[in-house]
């Protein structure tokens, strides 16, 4: 082979390998999705979505399970969004570059790297036992909020960083304070990015089992939760229970539950993406 032929061969090989990797990813994602839909769809019915489990989990629907997860996510959002967005604003707009800020950033990326089961143990120790919230929506949502916070902080910081410094300068030069500049100019422009990033963080929390294992989720509960101190059933934990603890359970129920969880999370991401692209068309620079 001449040098040119060899170069051309390597070029073809590079296209082939990188392309194959891309195709593999798409195929894996598609397979996963299609498999869940095919296995789950037969179990989905109006009754499945609106009835409680019965017959020792082998019959009935998952209505309280869905409600439990919705409560958990709503309260997780309530706890993590204000703090996460505020911390992101502080880091992006106010914090001076220095060792303290570097330490905060390091802490945040460490928080993001902690395994979720460790958050579960942490939540058990702090919220369930020490603060005596018991196994409850409150304890579970606080634990999930710890898990989601770094994602929201990072998303907020990234979104704020996208806003040209021109705009901040223009506002400051008109006699606006830093805070007015942030809430009138910077935040509205960064809103779509913050919301999208936060929703991705929250949808990850929706699918987590480990953090709620000791802090919120129960095997079976007859009534719907009536306060934030109630324990709840939750989709990921329900799947885990069905898969490991219930012998002779029908496949339809377990795959149907999985499909509901995946569909819910996907719906959130799609809504976030659609909203963002609408905002993008409205605001550009």
């Amino acid at each position: 082979m001449t040098r040119v032929q060899r170069a051309r061969f390597i070029q073809t090989l590079a296209v082939g390998i990188t392309g194959a990797a891309a195709v593999f990813i798409i195929a894996a994602a598609l397979f996963l999705l299609v498999y869940i839909v095919v296995r789950g769809l037969p179990g989905i019915s109006w009754a499945f979505l609106t009835e409680s489990p019965s017959g020792q989990m082998k019959e009935g629907g998952i209505y309280p399970v869905i409600v439990g997860t919705l409560y958990l996510i709503a309260f997780t959002a309530l706890f993590s969004l204000p703090v996460g967005v505020a911390a992101g604003i502080y880091l992006s707009e106010y914090a001076a570059r220095g060792p303290a800020t570097r330490a905060i950033r390091l802490a945040i990326s460490n928080m993001a790297g902690v395994p979720s089961i460790v958050y579960g143990l942490f939540g058990l120790a702090l919220f369930v036992i020490l603060l005596d919230f018991g196994k409850s929506i409150l304890a579970g949502a606080l634990t999930l909020a710890c898990l989601t916070m770094p994602v929201i902080i990072t998303a907020t910081e990234e979104a704020l960083r996208q806003i040209p410094s021109d705009l901040r300068q223009a506002s400051l030069a008109l006699g606006a304070t830093r805070w007015r500049t942030i809430y009138r100019i910077v935040l509205p422009a960064a809103g779509p990015g913050i919301v999208t990033g936060s929703i991705l963080g929250l949808s990850r929390a929706a699918g987590e089992t480990a953090p709620i294992l000791f802090t919120a989720a129960v095997y079976y509960k007859r009534q719907l939760p009536d306060s934030i101190f109630s324990d709840v059933m939750a989709l990921p934990y329900h799947i885990y229970i069905l898969a490991t603890q219930v012998t002779g359970r029908p496949d339809d129920i377990i795959w149907g539950t999985a499909l509901v969880l995946v569909a819910g999370v996907t719906l959130l991401s799609v809504l976030a993406a659609a909203w963002r692209s609408r905002q993008r068309r409205k605001v550009r620079w």
């Binding site: 223009a170 400051l172 030069a173 006699g175 606006a176 550009r284």
Partner: peptide, 19 residues
């Protein structure tokens, strides 16, 4: 400085209207 900037305005190199 916030009060100063209401007395001394600035126009920048690149047009930078708010969105």
């Amino acid at each position: 400085p916030v009060e100063l900037r209401t007395k001394v305005g600035q126009v920048f190199q690149k047009p930078n209207p708010f969105p």
